[in-house]
Computed example of a mutant assay.
Amino acid sequence: MSHRPNNEPTALYRLYDDSDVLLYLGISFSPEARWGQHRNEKHWAHQVVRTTVEWYPTRKAALAAEEKAAAAEKPLHDSSWRKTGGGERPMWLDLEGQQKVVDGLAQEIEHGQHWMGRVLMSGAVGKQFGVSRATASNAMRVLRDRGLLEYRHYGRYSVLEGPTKTDFDKQFEVAREQRELRQAYLVWTVAELREAMKDLPEDTLISARLAGRPSVLPGQTAPDK
């Protein structure tokens, strides 16, 4: 239940997939924040490619518009439980996505792609496999029951099988720094950077990290050999 004033402007938002099927509609004082919650919680969130927002002067007006729209447009994932006040909140399960995580993560663990004791977070696992955090959590509970993971707290699980951290580092030590750099950054050439920044003001601040350190930095002279 919201604790915000009922006379505050409220948005009716709609979420569509790539075939323009209405997946869900709802109301919120802050639709962007609500969409952020859906990305973590709804098993269908990865299917959303388009959103629309309509603002109403009060929450009451938005509720009336939501009820009318839900009846006429029939979103694939209905939220009518909230308006009726009766019955239990439905639990939407993405069994296909859950199985994808179970199979994929189990294979990674069994092939030594995670060291023993490594902490995996359900949100990151969900992003890796293209499912919601809730679906990833369900899958990780299955792997916990199989003895591959141990629950820690707040969606975090530790890996129970695999190489030690030392052995893992030895196995993947080749170009490790370069691999981490490629995962975290786009690596551009100097020419590409000049082209990308040519229209920026001269005093624009840029945060950068060199993929390879030059032997002589600007303003320095090479040491005598």
Rank of each mutant, 00 (worst) to 15 (best):
E150M: 07
W81R: 00
T58K: 01
A139Y: 07
A70S: 14
E150W: 06
D169H: 12
G147H: 10
V101N: 00
T135E: 07
Q113F: 00
R50W: 03
A72C: 09
A62D: 01
G104Q: 04
G126Y: 01
T166W: 12
E150H: 13
V125K: 00
R141Q: 14
R152L: 15
D94H: 00
G104L: 01
S137I: 11
R156N: 11
Y56C: 08
D169S: 12
R144F: 05
G155M: 03
T51P: 07
N138Y: 09
E41T: 11
R82P: 03
S132A: 10
D145N: 15
R118S: 12
W44F: 02
W92S: 01
V119D: 04
E73Y: 02
V119C: 01
Q178R: 15
Q128D: 11
E150L: 12
Q113M: 05
A134Y: 07
S137V: 10
T84D: 00
T58N: 04
E161C: 14
Q113H: 13
R118L: 13
T164H: 13
R146K: 15
S79L: 00
G86C: 02
V49P: 06
L120Y: 00
Q178E: 14
A69F: 03
W115N: 08
F129R: 08
K170V: 14
Q99R: 12
V48I: 06
V48F: 00
K100Q: 12
R179T: 12
